[in-house]
Write a protein that binds this DNA or RNA. Sequence first.
DNA 1: CGCACGATGCTCT
DNA 2: GAGCATCGTGCGC
Length: 211
Amino acid sequence: MRLTASFYEQYDTIGLAQALLGCTMVHQSADGLTICRIVETEAYLNNDPASHSYKGQTARNASMFAPAGTFYVYLIYGMYYCVNVVSKEAGEAVLIRAAEPIEGIELMRYRRSLHPKTSLPKHSINPLTLPNLCNGPGKLAQAMGFTRAQHDSLCLCSDARVYLEKDTSLVTNEIVTTTRIGITQGSELPYRFLLKDNPYISVKPRYNSVI
DNA sequence: CGCACGATGCTCT
DNA sequence: GAGCATCGTGCGC
C-alpha cells in the first residue's frame, strides 16, 4: 500500500529515517518497473552542519523545504545522484543510502552498466551482482533510474510513477544506529540507521547500538 | 584487506 | 575557485 501524507507527517526526521527502513520504493519508468526495499537511511536535520539546508534555502535544496513526502534529488561529485525523502520538519530530510533489489533486476543491472565507472570485475567484486546494485546512495539512484531533472521535488504521495509502499506483512528487523558516512562535518552524530545483519547495506558499521 | 586517488560538473563563496 | 551526503581502481602490505 502506498505511503500517504499522513504517514510522512507522523514522524520527526529521526523517526521517519527509522520508519522508512523495510519500506519498498517503486519506480514505474518508461523503461520498465523497478522496486527495491530500503535497508539503510540517514537523517539530515536543521542546525546540522552536514545538511544541505544548513545555510538556508537555495536553488539546489529548495525541495527540502517542501511538504513531507517530497522527493529531494541532487547531483553529487558530478556523476551520481542521491535521493532523499523530505520530512515534516521544514529543511530536514532522510537520505536513502541502500536497498535490496526486489523487482526489475535486469533493468537495474542495465542502468548500472551504462555508467562509465561500472566496468566488469577488476577487483574481485562484480558491481553488477545482486548485492552491489543498490548498496550505496549513488548506485541506488542509478539502478532505480532517478535523476534530478526528472524526479527532484516530486510528491511521493501523489506522483503516478514514483512512490513508497509499506509491506505490512514484513516484520521489521532490529535497527542498528551508527554515525553517518562520507561527510566531514557532523560526522560524530548517530543519524545513520540500518536493518541489522542485512546483506544489502553499503558499509558495515564499525560499532553497533541496537535500538 | 585497506587506503589513496581520480573522474566530473554543479553550487555556493 | 573550493568543495562535495560517491564509486571503482590500483597499489602496497
